[in-house]
């Protein structure tokens, strides 16, 4: 399984289980297949505790997913937590910070 899902009040917590996000697994399809956005969810938290590597193909998965979700739920907010510093540096570089809060480990 790509990720484990939990809910906490108005937040959906997505614990990413894949250490490498390089376009070979589809988070987008995982979300569509599992129909996991409920009406009371206002925030999606992606937990990067297990993630050690991401490239632009992996980042594109998140962008596609957030773009898709934001069309359906424009007020959804996004957070990336437990992000390795080397990865958060890349996120800042490509200005992912403009669409999500990034918290490093």
């Amino acid at each position: 399984m790509i990720a484990e899902i939990a809910t906490d009040h108005d937040s959906l917590i997505v614990l990413i289980k894949e250490p490498r996000l390089d376009g070979q697994v589809s988070l987008f399809e995982f979300f569509l297949d599992n129909n996991i956005i409920h009406n009371n969810v206002e925030k999606i938290i992606f937990d990067f505790n297990h993630v050690t590597y991401i490239n632009s193909l992996g980042i594109a998965e998140f962008i596609s997913l957030m773009r898709y979700l934001s069309e359906k739920r424009p007020k959804l907010k996004y957070r990336f937590v437990n992000v390795e510093k080397k990865i958060s540096k890349i996120f800042k570089m490509i200005e992912l910070t403009s669409i999500a809060d990034i918290e490093s480990r």
Binding site: N55, S56, L57, A60, I63, I94, E95, L96, S98
Partner: peptide, 11 residues
């Protein structure tokens, strides 16, 4: 951000 940057462009 989330806007129009192409997949190739980001890499």
């Amino acid at each position: 951000g989330m806007q129009t940057l192409s997949p190739r462009g980001r890499g």
